[in-house]
Amino acid sequence: MAAITTKGLTKRYGSLEALGNLDITVEEGESFCLLGPNGSGKTTTIGILTGSLQSTAGTAVVMGIDVTADPIGVKRKIGIVPEMEYPPSFLTVREYLDLVCSLRKVDDPKPKIDRWIQFFGLESKENVMCKDLSKGTKKKVMLSAAFVHQPKLLFLDEPFLDLDPIIQRNTREYLKTYVKEGGTIFLSTHILEIAEKLCDRVGILYNGKLIACGSLSELKHSQESLEDVFMRLVEAV
């Protein structure tokens, strides 16, 4: 069953087309990565698929729910790590995770919150207000908030930015296990190495258009790295 299906998904800001006619299908249990240069439409795509942005045209169905018709229904079923947004300023780390669990109606939240606080090494920061945290720690809090309700689909927009190498590796390993256990990942990143290590399939966006989509083996010519593939496809447009 498809976790994500888009047909002709388009987003325009006035005369600027940020995303044009995007057709993508991501199956359940798949790890899909969206690559593209700055301003290519990756964050816009994630914004629409997670119900934060309204599309101008086309359809998007996520976990069997039409995003346009029921964006909150979609948000209930997914976990989101945004590129820029951080947790609220005046709640402590634990309070924010409590808030997330309450809004997501998580049963018996304490052990789940404890698990992610421990996973990201947040024990010494759990009672500190989020506004006083470093960028990296805020990112860990956002990752915890996305994982805590054990969603079946994760949208991750540059999730590894600001994270130290140890946490990057631990998170990557967790995500691999998550996919093995049936979870689905929709990842947007600039870090090609992560895409190569983590993803089954890759889509390349350029100027709001999907210029290539397929498994790494389908996209690569002999001996090519993902970076070579990316440069070849983008330069060909």
Partner: peptide
Amino acid sequence: LDTIECYKTLPV
């Protein structure tokens, strides 16, 4: 009091 963008990630 605070910015509101963090609500983007929540079912709110």
